[in-house]
């Protein structure tokens, strides 16, 4: 990947809040990028919520079957 292409990708990730950038000390050209954990934790929480929803629905389905309809 070329340096300009890499910069473009990083800009999109930063705009999306997935990475954060810091100045790299004395060298003004240098930027240090780090991954932010929070957006991924939020996504995982959403998936967990959906999983719990379906687990509850299927649990109720199973109870209904075992009662004989």
């Amino acid at each position: 990947m070329s340096a300009p292409a890499l910069s473009r990708h990083l800009r999109v990730l930063r705009a999306g809040g997935l990475v954060q950038a810091e100045a790299g000390g004395d060298d003004a050209r240098l930027r240090l990028y780090t991954l932010r954990q929070e957006p991924f934790a939020a996504l995982q929480a959403w998936l967990d919520q959906v999983q719990a929803f379906w687990a509850e629905q299927l649990g109720s389905f199973k109870d209904h079957v075992e009662r004989g309809g």
Partner: peptide
């Protein structure tokens, strides 16, 4: 990361499980 799964086992044949 975009898929979730849930499963149960019910004590009836597949045809009955599908119908219920």
């Amino acid at each position: 990361m975009s898929t979730v799964q849930a499963s149960v086992t019910v004590p009836v044949e597949p045809a009955d499980a599908f119908r219920v």
